[in-house]
Design a protein around this nucleic acid. Sequence first.
DNA 1: TCCCAGGTCCTGA
DNA 2: TCAGGACATGGG
Length: 290
Amino acid sequence: MLIYEKDNKLIIENVKSFNITHIFDCGQCFRWNKEDDGSYTGVVKNKVINILQNNSTIIFDKINYDDYETLIRNYFDMDTDYDNIKNQINVDEVINKSIEFGQGIRILNQDEWETMISFMISANNRIPMIKKVIENLSMSFGDYICNYKGRDYYAFPSAEQLCKAPLEKIQQCKAGFRSERIKEAAQRALYEKDIIYNLKNKTYDEGLEYLKTYKGIGDKVANCILLFSMKQFDTFPVDVWVRRIMQTLYVGENTSDKDIRIFAENKFGKFSGYAQQYLFYYARENGIGR
DNA sequence: TCCCAGGTCCTGA
DNA sequence: TCAGGACATGGG
């Protein structure tokens, strides 16, 4: 991997296991959108990031090496050995095919608070709608960042900002029945921010137990939060898509979500979360079980 | 009109 | 512990 700055861009050559379509379309994040030139633009913390890929070269617009060290490197999971992970979870033909199909997937290290609220919104919702609600919340309550390629960008609102927001205004963001849950979570997070940001240093069970004390966070959402923002990679969140592919290709049709999760965690081991992402992407892109 | 979406909560056995 | 319905919203 070769990293250098050129013309106000940061360029990384010879990246392996990195495909921006796989990364942004595998359902782990909701704030990235494709541009006409094939690049993706998104918001990470308080920064707008645009990323373009040509084969094994990735180009970040208006990013310098400092930004790479403080933000990009961790967010894009650049220090993880994906070959090793793929080898460890590649235990049969189904997962082998899925890994091949989504070879460029990476599990992003996202902000804990943003991930909590985002997956709270995901309950009984569609991905385009989830993205719209998050965008509405950011535009209504988040800090303005800048204009990029003709579009205004806003940071995801903090707990403080959502706490001040009247319930009706949250409802106007089309959050539906999740509006009160968001408001309640913000009120709690205001005083428990340290706990939330320290969960990655706790055990999986402690994290799960804590997250589920929030209204609107059940088993599935809690596991997504743990996987996508708290580095708990041994968990296997079961949603409709994962249920479909697992029931079709591994276990019986009437197997419960909990049993599917236990089956998968035993099968794929400490990197079950990565296996879940490959399977999710494969199932969704190929309509498995529909 | 009905069905469903990266589910959770509540209720009643 | 577990099944079944309600829940906002919008697209097919």
